[in-house]
């Protein structure tokens, strides 16, 4: 299976959200990484057939998805960044509704609904009204509906929002498990969502493709750019506006700094092994959100 994003541009009245975006995806997990407002959600909506691009097209096995219609959406699972439910519906009823929307056969729908509720750990709440759910429970229900039709292309936009650390780990493990024979697109600004499971990381900034590479290569490229050093208060104050600092730990009168820089910083420091979050700061000039 091959999903090609070809010259996708999305323009609104006063803004270009995505510009000339090109990439190719096969089976596996792809992490679309970028800060808020980078254009990730817009791109996800184009892939989910919710937006018509101003220019460009998306091809699935050389067929334009805009002409495939319900045949494309039949193999799609989509978790939007922001979405809602019918508050008066129970979780079970809502998933049965989504199952009908996804064209699941009446005979298998109840079993599939039970299965996905179990996967996201909501089975004991299945008869509760969604209006009474917490934010995390709603997010898990959102993940459940995306998995209902066993999709070949799974698009998850900010999937771990509202999940506690335990649920995040569970979620990552689930994605790893199911990614063998499907395309999983994970759009996020949280590095830890993708750092151990993504086959490739696709970096987006200001609507443009910044780079595509495996996490290992990205980390290899970051070699020699991550430093750990000790600074005094005065040294820290003089450095903080000129250098990207990914971590600050106060140890008495001294401050231990993790600095991202091509050149060695002007304090006593040693080269450190890089992490994906260092790459985020290096490319996006923002601190990683946890």
């Amino acid at each position: 299976m091959r999903l090609i994003i070809e010259n996708i541009t999305m323009k609104y009245k006063d803004k270009v959200a995505v510009e000339d975006f090109n990439t190719e995806l096969n089976e596996g997990v792809y992490g679309f990484l970028g800060p808020n407002g980078a254009g990730k959600t817009t791109l996800m909506r184009v892939l989910a057939d919710l937006l018509r691009p101003t220019r460009g097209r998306v091809l699935l096995d050389d067929r334009d998805i805009s002409t495939m219609g319900d045949k494309y959406r039949n193999i799609l699972g989509y978790l939007p960044q922001s979405f809602g439910f019918y508050k008066s519906f129970t979780a079970h009823k809502f998933l049965m509704y989504i199952a009908a929307l996804k064209g699941l056969d009446k005979s298998i729908s109840p079993d599939k609904v039970e299965e996905v509720l179990d996967i996201v750990n909501l089975k004991e709440h299945s008869k509760r009204k969604i209006g009474k759910f917490s934010g995390g429970m709603k997010q898990r229900l959102g993940i459940a509906q995306a998995l209902l039709n066993d999709p070949k292309i799974l698009i998850l936009d900010e999937p771990t929002a509202g999940l506690d650390p335990k649920e995040r780990i569970r979620f990552r493990n689930l994605i790893s498990e199911i990614s063998k024979d499907r395309i999983v697109i994970l759009s996020t600004h949280i590095v830890s969502d993708i750092e151990y499971i993504a086959k490739e990381v696709i970096l987006i900034k200001d609507g443009k493709l910044l780079g595509v590479d495996s996490p290992e290569n990205i980390l290899e490229n970051m070699k020699g750019k991550v430093w750990k050093g000790i600074a005094s208060e005065e040294e820290f104050n003089s450095m903080k506006d000129d250098y990207k600092i990914s971590n600050i730990v106060r140890k008495g009168k001294e401050i231990e700094l993790r600095i991202i820089s091509k050149d060695k910083p002007p304090i006593e420091s040693i080269e450190e092994e890089s992490r994906l979050e260092d790459m985020y700061l290096y490319y996006f000039d923002q601190e990683v959100e946890e």
Binding site: R45, A48, D49, L50, D70, R73, N74, L76, Y78, P80, S82, F83, G84, F85, Y86, I98, A100, L101, K102, G103, Q145, N149
Partner: peptide, 13 residues
Amino acid sequence: TKVDRLILSSKNG
């Protein structure tokens, strides 16, 4: 309710 994005991205949507 923003359920439209779930509906429109589904087969029968």
